[in-house]
Design a protein around this nucleic acid. Structure first.
Lengths: 117, 117
DNA sequence: TAGCTTGCTACACATTTAGTAGCAAGAGGT
DNA sequence: ACCTCTTGCTACTAAATGTGTAGCAAGCTA
C-alpha cells in the first residue's frame, strides 16, 4: 500500500491534490484513531497498542510508518509522539469530540410518535 | 460491515463512545471524500460518482446508505445532499483544505543539504 | 544467566474495496 | 407502442487491506 504523498497520485485520486492525499491517509483504518490517542501524550509502541484497544501490532506499525514518513508523528527514545504538524492537524479535528456527542443525541433522538407515550 | 452507530460497539472499539463510531465511519474509504464532494452542492448518483473520480457504484452505494442512516446525507428527488448535520461536520473539517496545502509544502520542503546547492 | 518487557516481524485467514458488466425503470422522441 | 438514452443501482470476481496469533531479537533486572 503506497503511502499517500501529496503531489502524487493516491488511492482513488490521480490529481495529486494535497487534500486527496490527506483524505486517503485519514481514510485508512486507525489513522485518525492513532492521532487522537497520541494527542493524549506520547506513548511507547505497546502502550499505544493498548490505548487503541489492542490494534494488531502489524497494522499499528504500518500506520506509524506512514505517519512518520508524512511528518505527523515522530519516534524518539521515549516512544511515539505527534509532531508540531500532527498537533496542528489534531487542533482542526479536535471539535469532532463534542460534535460526535451532539450527533449521537440526534441519531438516537426520540421520534414524534415516541414523544406521545 | 455494520454501520457504526454511536452508542454501540464498532470496528476497533467496544466502548460505544460516539467519537469512536465517528472515527470508524470517517476511516472508511471515501467517506470523507463523499462529504467533501457533496459540499460542493447536491448531486445525482452518477454525478457524484464522477466527482469522486469514478468510485465504483457498489462502494458509493454502500457509503451513501451508511451516511443516510447516520443522518449526514439525505436523498431526495434531485439526488443526494448533505443534511444540516452533514454541513456542520463539513464546517469542522473544511480547514483541512488549506492545512493540506501547507502540509504538502513542508513535506516537500527543501532540505538543508539541497539548500546549499 | 534466567526471566521479564519491548518493539517489532511473519504469516495465514477474513474482510473490504476496486472494477466491470449489466439490468430495471423512467423520460423523451417518432 | 416502440426505440433509445440516462439514471440508479445490483451482482460478481479479483485485488488490496486489516485481523489475530505466534514468536523472536535486543535490552533490562535480578
Amino acid at each position: 500500500m503506497p503511502i499517500p504523498i501529496p503531489g502524487q497520485a493516491v488511492r482513488g485520486s490521480k490529481t495529486g491534490k494535497p487534500i486527496m492525499a490527506l483524505l486517503d491517509l485519514l481514510g485508512r483504518t486507525w489513522s485518525l484513531g492513532i492521532i487522537w490517542q497520541l494527542q493524549l501524550g506520547p506513548a511507547t509502541f505497546r502502550a499505544l497498542q493498548q490505548r487503541c484497544e489492542q490494534i494488531s501490532p502489524s497494522l499499528l506499525n504500518t500506520r506509524l510508518k506512514e505517519l512518520v514518513t508524512l511528518k505527523l508523528v515522530t519516534k524518539n527514545a521515549n516512544g511515539y509522539a505527534l509532531t508540531p504538524q500532527g498537533v496542528s492537524l489534531f487542533t482542526i479535528i479536535a471539535p469532532l469530540g463534542d460534535w460526535s456527542n451532539d450527533w449521537a443525541r440526534q441519531i438516537n433522538a426520540p421520534t414524534d410518535s415516541s414523544l406521545k407515550e
